[in-house]
């Protein structure tokens, strides 16, 4: 296990030159800050809301890797006071879907801070997030000796066809896509890395119902109090050392957890998925995107009678998707 971890970490460090600093505003190493790490490509439309959502939550600084955007994302990010920007030249796929780049940045800047690693279409929801800033959560986890925070992906989608309502910069994606699947998540324990393997939701039931093993993983551990020897193994689905993955209780109790609202299914998705399929830069030969494309032919609608409309974190806790653990 240690060898695996060192291999992943070593790989990230060896490839550090693939990540070229463009504008690093985070001059000296921080301590006890809440940092946000992102890798993106052509997300100009989503950026305004994304940045403001996490700023309001209390992210102190964003560390963003741009993988060759040509839609103005880069120029936009350069104007932001709290963003440090890097550029990655290489292939997304060859860098293990951006994880080598982020592991390097985490190694270099993350240590001693709470590091949130998300995509531009993922929005963190944690217990009490409507009344307490992220700092309250991370400080509580510090005193409780909790090092990692689980937030599974919760796919949200619109009521009608995906392209019906166009998404414009600055809009809250949840205004368009507020529906989610309440109780069709399939969980298996990964004996090797100790993490739970969660699949399900609208993608599994619409595209992978007859072959659920191939459905995309939803388990994520996006918020970690980073230390130099940590490494993400496969996206943020699992990390090493294994203790970081043990975010669940096995004695019947509940630990704290949240979700990442995954607003992938917006109007922007249609262009994106045809582009991504051509690039072939995604996981497992973009199998997922192939399936979407097939579904898209007849105007994909993910909504069903059983879908629920997102209200707040209490609703998610009631449904058993998240838990406040013992954070009263």
């Amino acid at each position: 296990m240690r060898a695996t971890r060192q291999w992943y970490l070593g790989r990230a460090i060896r490839r550090r030159r693939g990540v070229v600093p463009v504008n690093v505003r985070l001059a000296k190493p921080t301590k006890n800050a809440n940092l946000c790490f992102v890798t993106l490509r052509n997300e100009r439309v989503r950026l305004p809301f994304f940045l403001s959502y996490y700023r309001d939550m209390g992210i102190d600084h964003f560390l963003i890797v741009d993988n060759g955007s040509d839609d103005g994302s880069r120029e936009y990010l350069l104007q932001q006071e709290d963003v440090s920007l890097w550029q990655a030249k290489g292939s997304y796929k060859a860098s293990r879907f951006g994880m080598d780049w982020l592991n390097w940045l985490l190694f270099r800047y993350g240590t001693g801070n709470w590091c949130l690693t998300v995509d531009p279409d993922e929005f963190l929801v944690y217990p009490h997030c409507d009344t307490r800033p992220l700092k309250a959560l991370t400080q509580w986890m510090d005193t409780s000796r909790i090092r990692s925070f689980s937030a599974m992906l919760l796919d949200v989608y619109p009521e009608g066809r995906i392209g019906d309502q166009p998404y414009r910069p600055g809009m809250n994606p949840m205004e368009i896509a507020c529906w989610f699947d309440p109780a069709n998540y399939m969980i298996h324990k990964n004996g090797q890395y100790g993490n739970l393997w969660i699949q399900g939701g609208p993608r599994a039931r619409s595209f992978f119902a007859r072959d659920p093993k191939l459905a995309p993983a939803l388990n994520k551990i996006p918020l970690v109090r980073w230390r130099r020897h940590y490494a993400y193994i496969s996206s943020t689905h699992m990390a090493l050392p294994r203790a970081l993955n043990i975010v669940y209780d096995e004695e019947g109790g509940e630990r704290i957890s949240g979700v990442l609202l995954h607003a992938k299914f917006l109007s922007t998705f249609i262009e994106k998925s045809s582009e991504e399929m051509v690039r072939g830069e995604h996981y497992a030969d973009s199998q997922e995107y192939r399936a979407y494309s097939a579904g898209m032919e007849d105007d994909m609608i993910l909504w069903t009678e059983e879908s629920r409309c997102y209200e707040d974190w209490r609703q998610l806790q009631e449904l058993g998707l998240i838990s406040q653990g013992n954070w009263a």
């Binding site: 969980i187 969660i198 669940y248 209780d249 096995e250 019947g252 109790g253 838990s323 653990g325 013992n326």
Partner: peptide
């Protein structure tokens, strides 16, 4: 009472719930 309910949630959890932060071993389900 509020705090007591939270303690119970942390220690015993909600019966019949299997999720990302509660995945009891066999026969530890409460």
């Amino acid at each position: 009472r509020v705090i007591g309910a939270t303690v119970a949630r942390r220690r015993l959890g909600r019966p019949g719930l299997y999720m990302q932060s509660r995945f009891p071993l066999k026969d530890r389900e409460n």
